[in-house]
Design a protein around this nucleic acid. Structure first.
Length: 805
DNA sequence: AGCACGCCGACT
DNA sequence: GTCGGCGTGCTC
């Protein structure tokens, strides 16, 4: 047999190792290896074992002479875990996002399949070293991670002397759940001929039982034990006698073996909805990868449209993929999808354990699930015949991953749709400017749902000018107008949703005498007050200290809390409305698993009058008795140094306004603001997306931002401010040489929060339309920066960044 | 990333 | 003279 070589991407995330390495496939693994399977290979001087992905198999030697090849140690998968599509997608991702290939391959898989590494130290002979021998105790092998640092050097010596050896372990992060199974090796005739002592009653029973089974078929042992009344010991004996072969098979749990889901029927569609569904269906039929922008006002029944589009794709024998932002993947939403498609649905979201996520992934891979709904990473679901991809709330920033690979799920969706020849539907009440601009240029097909399904008008939105009303407000955060509106709902037995916009905002402690604000010693941010733990905490590095009684700077005792937390508002509200039942939803009250669901359910059951929360209550909630939506602070995000600040504010206000008046009763929306004249707030008041779009596009055009320009952000950080700045100025200088005059470089500037965990951050942003040299320069930059990385540099390149702060 | 090699200062 | 500091470079 000829030789076989495997090209392997190894799990060493560095620029220097960002290419395939060639390994020899030993004879006994020839029929196990395949492209897309994971392997364990030795890598580097100490021959440590790492995980890798086979990306190619060849019979001729692809590497130049001079290196002695190592062998593949082990093949980890029975079937490839990365498909041909996955390999191409990983290539594209690596290229598009400037990420390491290994990271792109890993992002395609559930975390459970990522490698967990450990090292153990094995004693090969007595060391005559009382201290270290004591560490070993009775055993000859110990966990190297627990070795005290002071022995490190000594161990290296012993290793050179061959007295100890380091063993590298690679295993999956999460063990697959295995259950015992067996296969009958003999035919019934053969079983009749085996000799069994008449006194071996158990074995006689076993023989009789086995005769009722088919040979060579795999049976689970547990049900077999129950059916036959035999024990696992009996099966073991039968295996020893060669009657059957025992093995372990993988079994997965279904996290949604939830029986309370009632089946739903397709609803009658409005003419607008029907037109949207029909348009997309035609493209599913034609296997045409058209992209649609479905722009429907809040309450226009987008979800029903999605469900019917997906049902159509399924009817054509294809699969459906639906993405929603993590926060709107509520039980309500899951119930709707499960109700329509039942067991065909796999759900991928962060609330699942790694094991559960893996099991859902396996159900998709085995084609038991043909509908996938999930947050960002679900876009990589291992479907092989996608008929439609839907992305709800397409404007949501959470679709962009902010670690390597920095992909946007929308870009991946468009890529996969091209591969599968299927349409993509981007849905939103407030599309991102990028998508809406593409719809205008007919790059996307624009579909609209301008009316609510219940025929209700959009809720009336009123602004409360806090510059005046704030002075007379009974409590700092709630004006009289707001309070009266809430009281009115209490009397009528209707419900209120109150939004506290906390983006870029936190409650901090300030001295009233000297203005001193308590800051984190490691980061350039003020510490946030946490009442649950009675401490001051840093949101970036986790630093925690006691709540100060006196000012650190002037020793005055007049330290006071500023800013607004949900908890403080809750107290204010309760003091004004002692009988009101309030549910508070924020990171503190939803930390526990399932808390999110429980609180919403309680509100839905009318166990409370007021739902008070942060952004997480702005989306997807649909409660018929909510007739008042109040926004307590509309403008905290407006002043952030980010050109998308107004877009986010407009989207948030429009979304939250849509929570009111979903059923028969009309809704009212009150927005407290200090910037009532700001166009984002004025146009959110009118819920006038069209004028907002025009206004914002004008602004983006004038200052040259997306969608008129592409952007790439480069961030450098060091533990030394001057070094970080110097690096960025060097890069800016080099960019000046390769960029055309049409491109612009903003910065370098220190980041808005310059210091986090004692590292200093500088950034620059490149705005450009067409720069043929830029990609190659940036790739070169990453290679060139690798030497400096040893000195503590961290360099991040982010294409199309969503956050500029 | 992690490991070895190699070239400089402070010690038995 | 050696031990061990960490800067440099490579890993199929």
């Amino acid at each position: 047999m000829s030789k076989l070589y495997a090209l392997v991407i190894v799990d060493v995330p560095a620029m220097q190792t960002n290419h395939p390495y060639t390994y020899l496939v030993p004879k006994q693994l020839h029929d196990q290896v395949a492209v897309g399977k994971r392997v364990i290979v030795g890598f580097g001087k100490g021959d440590r074992h790492v995980q890798g992905f086979i990306v190619d198999l060849r019979e001729d030697l692809p590497t130049q002479a001079g290196v002695t090849l190592k062998e593949v140690q082990e093949v980890l998968d029975l079937e490839p875990v990365i498909t041909q599509e996955g390999l191409q997608l990983a290539d594209w991702l690596a290229d598009h996002t400037f990420a390491f290939k290994i990271r792109c391959l890993q992002v395609l898989l559930p975390n459970a399949l990522k490698a967990a590494y450990s090292k153990t130290l094995k004693r090969l002979q007595p060391l005559d070293d009382p201290q270290i021998d004591a560490l070993f105790g009775q055993s000859d092998e110990i966990d190297l991670a627990q070795l005290p640092a002071q022995f490190q050097n000594q161990i290296i010596h012993y290793r050179h002397q061959g007295k100890v050896e380091i063993i590298y372990h690679v295993k999956d992060k999460v063990a697959k759940k295995q259950v015992p199974a067996f296969k009958l090796l003999l035919t019934p005739e053969q079983l009749d001929q085996v000799a069994v002592s008449p006194r071996a009653t158990k074995q006689l029973a076993m023989r009789d039982y086995l005769k009722t089974l088919e040979s060579a078929k795999l049976y689970l042992q547990k049900p077999a034990q129950a059916a036959s009344g035999l024990t696992s010991a009996d099966f073991r004996t039968a295996a020893k006698k060669g009657w059957l072969e025992q093995s372990q098979v993988e079994q997965y749990r279904d996290p949604y073996a939830d029986k309370n889901i009632t089946a739903t029927k397709p609803l009658e569609l409005t003419p607008d909805q029907n037109f949207a569904v029909k348009s997309v269906q035609a493209h599913i039929d034609q296997k045409d990868n058209r992209t649609f922008l479905l722009q429907g006002v809040t309450g226009s029944g987008k979800t029903e449209v999605y469900l019917q589009m997906m049902a159509y794709a399924l009817k054509q024998g294809r699969q459906a993929l639906m993405l929603v932002p993590e926060i709107s993947l509520t039980p309500q939403m899951m119930r709707r999808v499960k109700g329509r498609f039942g067991d065909l649905v796999a759900v991928m979201h962060s609330g699942l354990s790694a094991g559960e996520r893996y099991d859902e992934w396996r159900r998709i891979e085995r084609k038991e699930a043909r509908v996938v709904i999930g947050a960002r990473s679900a876009i990589f679901a291992p479907l092989d015949n996608i008929g439609i991809i839907i992305m709800d709330e397409e404007h949501e920033a959470s679709y962009k991953q902010d670690e390597m690979p920095r992909y946007h799920a929308r870009d991946v969706a468009l890529w996969r749709a091209r591969y599968h020849h299927c349409p993509v539907v981007l849905g939103s009440a407030t599309p991102s400017l990028e998508s809406r601009a593409r719809a205008m240029k007919n790059v996307y097909t624009w579909l609209t749902l301008p009316k609510r399904v219940n025929g209700q008008a959009l809720p009336k939105v009123e602004l409360i000018d806090m510059r005046n009303e704030g002075k007379y407000a009974p409590v700092p955060d709630i004006s009289n107008t707001m309070l009266n509106a809430i009281k009115d709902r209490l009397i009528k037995g209707e419900q209120t949703v109150l939004l506290l916009n906390r983006r870029g905002y936190s409650s901090f402690v300030m001295c009233r005498e000297c203005g001193y604000v308590l800051k984190c010693p490691n980061c350039d941010v003020s510490l946030t007050l946490h009442m649950d733990s009675h401490s001051m905490r840093c949101h970036y590095c986790g630093h925690e200290e006691a709540i100060p009684q006196t000012c650190d700077s002037c020793h005055s005792r007049k330290v006071r809390y500023y800013g607004t937390g949900t908890q403080k508002v809750e107290e204010q509200l309760q003091s004004l409305l002692p009988t009101a039942r309030i549910i508070r939803m924020d990171v503190d009250t939803t930390r526990k698993k399932g808390a999110h669901e429980r609180l919403l359910q309680a509100f839905g059951n009318k166990e409370a009058d007021i739902l008070l929360g942060t952004q997480m209550i702005a989306k997807g909630l649909d409660f018929p008795d909510v007739t008042l939506v109040g926004v307590l602070n509309a403008d905290t995000a407006l002043d952030l140094p980010d050109f998308r600040a107004s877009e986010r504010t407009f989207q948030l206000l429009t979304q939250v306004a849509g929570r009111a008046g979903r059923a028969q009763k009309a809704g009212q929306v009150l927005i407290q603001t200090y910037n009532p004249q700001h166009y984002a707030i004025q146009l959110a008041k009118g819920q006038d997306y069209e004028r907002y779009f025009q206004t914002e596009m004008g602004f983006r055009h004038r200052v040259g931002y997306p969608p008129y320009y592409y952007t790439i952000q480069i961030t450098a950080s060091y533990d030394n401010e001057a070094a970080a700045a110097k690096k960025m100025f060097t890069i800016a200088g080099e960019l000046g040489k390769i960029l055309s005059p049409q491109a612009q470089v903003l910065g370098p500037t220190p980041k808005a929060i310059m210091r986090i965990k004692n590292r200093y951050y500088y950034q620059l942003v490149i705005k450009y339309k067409h720069e043929p040299l830029l990609e190659d320069y940036l790739k070169g930059l990453l290679i060139q920066a690798q030497t400096e990385e040893k000195k503590g540099l961290k360099l991040v390149i982010d294409r199309d960044p969503l956050n500029f702060i």
